[in-house]
Amino acid sequence: MTVLCLVEHDADGPADASLRALTFAAKLAGAGPGGPVPVAAVLFGPADQVPGDALAAYGASSAHVVEPGHLDGYAPQAWARALAGLAAQVGAAAVVAAATDRGNEVMAYLGALTGLPMAANCVQAEPGDDGTYQVVRHRWAGLLLEEASLTGSPGLMTVATEAVPPAAVAEPVGALPVHPYAPSLSDDDLRVRATQTAGHSSGASLATARVVVGGGRGVGGPDGFAPLEELASLLGGVVGVSRVVTSEGWRPHRQQVGQTGTKITPELYLACGISGAIQHMAGCGGAKHIVVVNTDPGAPILAHADYAVIGDLGEVIPALVAALRARSASA
């Protein structure tokens, strides 16, 4: 028995979301009714680029790698086929992935190919004696928690990574063994495949920014964002917006924070002219500090914030920009 964990990489190595998924997998593997079982990472890419130390640090004791000669690039059904083959080979008790676009997609394919159920966005899972898993998972983008039982072997789960901080294990294995795996794929498995992956855009991304200056309906129109942009750049951050702003076409959707936008985890979220609808809060619950600028002292967002300035953002934000400029000029 083994717990398999899909590991994705980004430009700097294993994706942070995947380290969180490994943390979840390690916890699950340690809780087996028959005693702890090993965690094996599954990667797609060149074997000599497997980040063995990082994987071991987060609890993997081996890695299986599907090399580009067998499967080049991202093809969801082919990745799922490889996971299915590996799960059969190692007798996997569970297969886990981060609930990213790719993670959810590959795990849904794995569920479809095997006929097994798949629980998305889990925050917790415990194996029971009868082969079922008791899981806690997000519904409504984390606004609700569902307690559910998941049957089927292996148990298929994706991990709501914003709720599972990465945790290194006490005793990592020394040198992580890496086993190449050659999946047997059909033409159909490769029908859907990423033909182009465009380079990463340079600017700070909304998901990882340290400061996010938020703008909502209170900004009043597309022309109202210049002071927010200026403030964001002074603070080394980016602008995020509410759904009203994107559905009015004032700003592109990629700047939307919330249930159907991006989930953010900044040190500071400065929310201006945003009321604090729960679907918006679903995206900024991971912010360390929230400060609000709003004309309405009764706006619901005040119940989620550390500090508030009551007033017109059209007055407060330019004054804040001026104060920060004066400060850095005198420093």
Partner: peptide, 14 residues
Amino acid sequence: RKQATVLGTGADAV
């Protein structure tokens, strides 16, 4: 659930 501390009103709160 927090309740935000109000820093002040308008530009005076800057």
